[in-house]
Every structure is written in structure tokens, then in C-alpha cells.
Amino acid sequence: MTPAFQPTNLISSIVSLIFYLIMAGFVLYSLIALYALLRYGRSKILAIVVSLVYLTITAGLYVAAVNNLSNIKF
């Protein structure tokens, strides 16, 4: 497993800050969308299945993004 990204200078700190701000926005919007689906959706089973599939795919992509960030040499 790739170790967590550790910023080592100012540029890397700024890049990581921007990255995590974007991710925070992404997570917020995702949670709102999933909340609306689970709260107002007629079929709870469908909503749960869609949520799990979405969370699985996005978790994979998030790990890939963090790995890419860690691989950047400043």
C-alpha cells in the first residue's frame, strides 16, 4: 500500500491543499446525491445497490488519485 501523501515543500502543500479541497467538494456532492436517492427514492433496495456500486467505484478512483498525487515529484 502506498504511504499517505506527505507534503515536503510549499508547492506540494498547495497542490495537496487544492486536491483535498476538490475531493471535499466531490464527497459533499456525492453524499447529497446519495442522501436524496435514499430519502426520496421509491425502491430502497435499488437505492442501496446503486449507492454501494457508486461508493465502490469512487473509492477505487479516489485511491488511484491519491496514489497519483503521491507519485508526483516536486
Binding site: 446525491a33 446519495l34 446503486v50 457508486y54 469512487t58 478512483l61 507519485n71
Partner: peptide, 18 residues
């Protein structure tokens, strides 16, 4: 490039969900 592409993919997926 890989980092930008991965973030872009995440938002494409979010767009599909919404």
C-alpha cells in the same frame, strides 16, 4: 496528467449519478 484524469473521471461519475 494521471492525477487530473482521475479527478476528471470522479466528477464524470458524479455527473452520471446526479
Amino acid at each position: 496528467v494521471n492525477l487530473i484524469k482521475t479527478i476528471y473521471l470522479l466528477f464524470i461519475l458524479l455527473g452520471f449519478l446526479i
